[in-house]
């Protein structure tokens, strides 16, 4: 039985889009440090949601980028070869 060498397409597009999004977020964070710090450290229940929401946003964008980054580089989980 000929084994098919299925070449998985590398998620380069996804990596680039997520990368742009991630870089944009970090740029805003660092360029607008003072304003961000001021609002994010005001305290109280409503303002406390700001850092939490920001953390989720960054993790969504950057998590996506880093995940596809490693895949594009070919660093992936070990493929389990089932011998039944």
């Amino acid at each position: 039985m000929a084994k098919e060498h299925v070449r998985k397409k590398k998620p380069i597009g996804k990596m680039v889009v997520a990368g742009i999004f991630s870089i944009a977020l970090y740029t805003v964070l660092l360029l607008k440090q003072d304003m961000v710090t001021e609002y994010f450290s005001r305290g109280g229940v409503l303002y406390a949601l700001l850092p939490i929401a920001a953390a989720f946003l960054f993790s969504f964008a950057h998590g996506s980028f880093t995940g596809s980054f490693w895949t594009v580089l070919g660093v992936e989980a070990k493929k389990k070869k089932e011998v039944k």
């Binding site: 964070l29 961000v36 710090t37 229940v45 953390a55």
Partner: peptide, 12 residues
Amino acid sequence: AMHGLVDIRLAM
């Protein structure tokens, strides 16, 4: 965060 102690820049 409710006490305003999170430095979001460091965390991110």
